[in-house]
Design a protein around this nucleic acid. Sequence first.
DNA 1: GATAGATCCATAAGGATGTGATATAAATGT
DNA 2: ACATTTATATCACATCCTTATGGATCTATC
Lengths: 153, 153
Amino acid sequence: MEISGEAAVDRLAADLAAGLERVVSLLRALSQPSGLSMTAVATLATLEREGTQRLTGLAALAGVTQPAMTQLISRLEDDALVRREADPADGRVVQVRITDEGRATLARRRAGRAAKLAVILTQLSPEHQAALATAVPALDALAAARRDEPVLA
Amino acid sequence: MEISGEAAVDRLAADLAAGLERVVSLLRALSQPSGLSMTAVATLATLEREGTQRLTGLAALAGVTQPAMTQLISRLEDDALVRREADPADGRVVQVRITDEGRATLARRRAGRAAKLAVILTQLSPEHQAALATAVPALDALAAARRDEPVLA
DNA sequence: GATAGATCCATAAGGATGTGATATAAATGT
DNA sequence: ACATTTATATCACATCCTTATGGATCTATC
């Protein structure tokens, strides 16, 4: 007996939609109160992972509007975490690049989060820990798949 | 040769800390632009899942300050999604209860997110889909474990 | 049983960060 | 050349968070 693929996806989507609600609180609790916003961290991570990006692209990837990204990049630039660069092929576009200081900040931030997460993870069963370890690449794939989905642009 | 449990947890924590950065963007993209904030949805979900809660407890679970939760509950109450109730045993505390309209709103919200998620999930390999399905209970356990962690209170 | 301290919630003031509308500059197509 | 589209910036405004503080109620100790 084979499980219907379509129904399974819908079921998974519903479960995941409900489950992800809880992750927001977790993320907020993991963040230091006085630091970068969640969007700022996500954007820095994108720049580190994918390299230089244009501003509009970053806005779409972060799920915010273009004006919001313009302001975010300005703030990050003031903190010397990113650099605006001109695009030689198109005078309108702004290419955004992460700086070494940006990378260092991101690393520090991750280390802090990881330390807090590690404390919590030790309370979980080995099965749940294993499930999370397996899910990390899947979450990455999920985020990557969204990039190519015009519905969510 | 046995893998050190402690090292494995640290490694998982680091991977998960980096991986969760991407989820923020995904969550934002899944949200309708004009609706409830991410904190509001997470709080409503807590109330639905755990039942009536005191205001301070909600703030701790959501990872925000108590004044922020007071304001959020006021907004939700204005929209008739929650109700403030007096605690018969302690005159200081405010018990917050989700209303039927709150449940309905949460359900609508989840349905919208699930529909968008389903589109993305179909692009993932069966292995990744399976990994995510297995991870949902683990994510719940992770969020539940945080509750008992005073370090993050 | 009075009173000091702790706890819970509300309020106020301010800041960070989002949106929508619109301006400006550059590229593109006719 | 000129109209249209595209990329970014700017402006006005709304949302939602923070810190600081106040008032009400509970708890413990004298």
